[in-house]
């Protein structure tokens, strides 16, 4: 089967900044893919390239085997962008109906409205919507053409808890209907909850591409730190599954997935520690461990 989206050694440079560095990625029809990464990692650039909103500096981008600017490809894709606007004086229903005419076999407007959770705002003018409602409107505009593939760039930004829940339910519904979904997020939990495949992007490179379960086992989930009276030698950590090891002012810090095993080994090696702390690593730190792995590989 042909991939729905394909990037082949794609690079993108903005002036001096390398946003993507020779990235290759194929997304098959029916896949639910999260592009995960910190701000500035290259997620939005990747989506823009897949949509033909930006041109790659090098390499090739295909959408359903066509250049992404081709109308035949675009007619099969729905899009929700981070930064875009729309005319304020039309009502929600009018705008969704209008967007439906751009696609060969659109959903009935009211169906898209209900799926986006906007039923009580259907006749409101767009300008009167709150930030979260506007985000739902953009979601409705993305799905109103009944596309085979959905591109959602940071879809849950600005949504309140209820809107987010409705959104997650809609995504699962679309996934069950066999749609291909590509979304970006910088929340690991969101990626884990919705996606069946997580592509981690950092500084323009794909540093991990795995199922949520595989990824969670690779990501260093705990941050450990303790004080020592005497400085440790490097071989105190020999063979232990730690990353991001650093020591300063008598305090040792590292990231690990197996804090119990690592600490047991350290005790057995006679390391004397005080003020031991074990805490859940935040996403930045989790990325850090992945990045280090990518660099040392």
């Amino acid at each position: 089967m042909n991939p729905a989206v394909e990037l082949v050694e794609v690079s993108k440079r903005y002036g001096q900044v390398e946003a993507l560095r020779s990235v290759s990625l194929a997304i098959q029809p029916g896949e639910i893919v999260a592009m995960l990464g910190p701000n500035g990692a290259g997620k939005t650039t990747s989506i823009s390239l897949m949509l033909g909103l930006r041109k790659p500096t090098g390499g090739q981008v295909r959408l359903f085997g066509l250049p992404p600017t081709d109308h035949r490809a675009r007619s099969r894709a729905g899009v929700m962008l981070q930064e875009s606007g729309t005319t304020g004086v039309l009502t929600v229903r009018e705008l969704i109906t209008l967007f439906g005419t751009y696609y060969p076999s659109p959903l009935p407007a009211d169906r898209a409205i209900v799926m986006a959770g906007l039923a009580d705002k259907a006749d409101a003018r767009v300008v009167t919507l709150s930030g979260g409602q506007r985000q739902r409107l953009y979601f409705a505009l993305a799905i109103c053409g009944d596309p085979e593939i959905l591109f959602l760039d940071e879809p849950t930004v600005g949504m309140d808890i209820e809107a987010r829940r409705a959104f997650v339910a809609s995504i699962k519904h679309l996934a069950d209907a066999g749609k291909t979904i590509v979304f970006t997020t910088h929340y690991l939990r969101e990626a884990e909850e919705l996606a069946r495949r997580i592509v981690v992007v950092d500084r323009g490179l794909i540093i991990a591409d795995a199922t949520p379960r595989e990824l969670m086992s690779k990501v260093a989930a705990k941050r450990v730190s303790f004080s020592v009276a005497r400085a440790l030698t490097a071989d105190a950590f020999g063979g232990l599954a730690v990353t991001g090891l650093e020591a300063s002012d008598g305090r040792v810090r590292f990231l690990t997935n197996e804090p119990e095993a690592v600490l047991r080994a350290l005790f057995e090696r006679g390391v004397e520690m005080r003020d031991l702390e074990v805490a859940g690593a935040d996403l930045e730190e989790a990325f850090l461990s992945l990045t280090r792995r990518a660099e040392s590989a």
Binding site: R74, V79, T86, Y102, Y138
Partner: peptide, 17 residues
């Protein structure tokens, strides 16, 4: 005004020629 509101950005991503 449409450019200011980035209406063009979204329209560009749709199949509307």
């Amino acid at each position: 005004v449409e450019r200011g509101m980035k209406v063009d950005l979204l329209m560009r991503a749709t199949p509307l020629p």
